[in-house]
């Protein structure tokens, strides 16, 4: 992972926007006023951070539960390490998968190396999505499970200090 070097002004912009952009007609000018630079500087720097991947995207972050997507299942799969990148790309491309990662196994407790998160309005909807993933993986599946979340114990945003 490339670490992008950010200067003090970049960090000030991050700190000023990580809880959200101002909901005003000129949000970038308002951020600029707060950090002490001009609007064009904020726009240029956010554009640069977007290009470098420091900013993943700018927009709305929906709360799944409030949209009625109250069921979430972490589907986990054990596939051959030699195949996991090809299969992960396939699963990650499904439009209903919100996160898809390769992670290490923790043997003997945990044999799975491919994780894909799915959400649904009902348990059936999540199961249907899981079945679709299973179809795509086909004979590559050596073992599989799904872990439903039963309770959110903590949820805070990531905090980066300015």
């Amino acid at each position: 992972m490339t670490v992008t070097s950010l200067d003090a002004l970049d960090r000030a912009i991050v700190a000023a926007t990580q809880s959200g952009l101002p909901l005003t007609p000129t949000p970038y000018a308002d951020v600029a006023a707060a950090v002490g630079c001009d609007e064009a500087e904020v726009i240029t720097r956010l554009g640069r951070m977007l290009e470098a991947g420091v900013v993943r995207r700018i927009g709305a972050v929906p709360n799944h539960y409030r949209l009625g997507l109250s069921h979430n299942g972490m589907t986990v799969w054990d596939v051959d390490d030699a195949e996991v990148d090809r299969l992960g790309a396939l699963i990650g491309a499904l439009d209903f998968v919100t996160h898809c990662y390769r992670r290490p196994r923790a043997l003997p407790d945990w044999p799975y190396n491919l994780f894909a998160m799915v959400h649904g309005r009902s348990r059936d909807e999540v199961e249907a999505k899981r079945a679709e993933i299973a179809d795509l993986l086909g004979p590559a599946i050596r073992a599989a499970d799904i872990l439903y979340s039963t309770r959110i114990l903590k949820k805070t945003g990531l905090r980066i200090t300015g």
């Binding site: 992972m1 926007t17 959200g20």
Partner: peptide, 26 residues
């Protein structure tokens, strides 16, 4: 703007703005 304000205040959106990748900050 008014609707985004309502959507964030009511928690339909947890936020509106940039999403940062912490790993890119080291």
């Amino acid at each position: 703007l008014a609707r985004l304000d309502t959507l964030t205040a009511s928690g339909v959106l947890s936020r509106f703005g940039p999403m940062f990748d912490a790993e890119r900050f080291g």
